[in-house]
């Protein structure tokens, strides 16, 4: 597939269908890959795709100020691109989505298949402009079993669990910076007037940061796990993003990244919305 990918990108760049292409290349060892930025059509030979291509390249679409981009996407990353298009960050026609069939990616730290890849519905990408390779989608639906299990805990247990997790947090903001939908140029965490977060790091402040970040990406997060895999101290942020996906589905029957014209759940309303819990 690498050869096909290289040829396709070479073609797109030569025909000026894209100014830049974003793909993957080998990083420091055979178990790691990193994003590659290709400007010169003669430079495509370093592009690869394999089971270590863990990054979500949709991230760079809001960072590069270019008119026409081609981006290599796994099926799950396409949801991110769609979500960004829905948020009017760029136009659909300005991005060429190269979907690559994917049998799942491995976490470079544990060498295990990511949990999200187990029941993947988009091994064969949907909605791409070009599709390379073949893969068979999972027949089982996405499982929320671990979230459901966690929800059963008492609030005290949950609190203890998160306190322990956020004690580890070093607030490097890797989770925020790899998040494709966390593109605010002036994040609340950096503002000093008013100051929500000081530079002071403790478990409480760390938790405040994560709570607010999670709230900010609700209905926009595509549960791509970029934050989870980026965390240098292995905080299971997936437990939070998955909860967001579950809530969006259960409360508002909404799935982010599915439709580029949809209204996200919190920026619309329905007069018949449930209010069972409101006194």
């Amino acid at each position: 597939m690498d050869k096909e990918l290289q040829e396709l990108i070479k073609k797109l760049l030569t025909e000026k269908k894209a100014e830049w292409a974003i793909g993957y290349e080998k990083a420091y060892d055979e178990f790691s890959t990193r994003p590659a930025f290709i400007i010169d059509p003669a430079d495509t030979a370093r592009l690869i795709f394999n089971k270590y291509c863990i990054n979500n390249l949709g991230l760079y679409l809001t960072k590069l100020k270019k008119n026409k981009l081609a981006v290599v996407c796994k099926g799950c990353d396409i949801a991110t691109v769609f979500e960004l298009i829905r948020e009017k960050q760029f136009k659909r026609e300005n991005v060429a989505i190269i979907g690559v069939a994917c049998e799942g990616v491995l976490d470079k730290r544990t060498n295990k298949l990511l949990e999200k890849c187990e029941n993947c519905q988009v091994k064969q990408p949907k909605g791409a402009d070009f599709t390379l390779g073949n893969a068979k989608n999972s027949e089982k639906p996405k499982s929320y079993a671990d979230v459901v299990e966690f929800e059963k805990k008492s609030s005290k247990e949950k609190l203890e669990f998160w306190n322990r997790q956020f004690e580890k947090c070093i607030r490097c903001y890797a989770c925020r910076n790899v998040c494709p939908v966390c593109y605010c140029p002036d994040c609340f965490a950096l503002r000093s007037m008013p100051e929500y977060l000081s530079k002071h790091v403790d478990a409480d402040k760390n938790k405040l940061f994560h709570m607010i970040r999670m709230q900010h990406v609700f209905g926009r997060c595509t549960d791509c796990k970029a934050c989870d895999t980026a965390c240098p101290v292995n905080i299971p942020l997936s437990m939070l993003t998955k909860k967001l996906a579950k809530d969006a589905k259960e409360l508002f029957n909404y799935e982010s990244g599915a439709d580029t014209d949809a209204r996200p759940p919190l920026s619309t309303y329905d007069e018949g919305d449930s209010e069972s819990d409101i006194m």
Binding site: D247, L251, D277
Partner: peptide
């Protein structure tokens, strides 16, 4: 409200 309440519960 329901989303926030659910998320907060998740945080304990």
């Amino acid at each position: 409200y329901p989303h926030l309440k659910s998320l907060m519960e998740h945080f304990g």
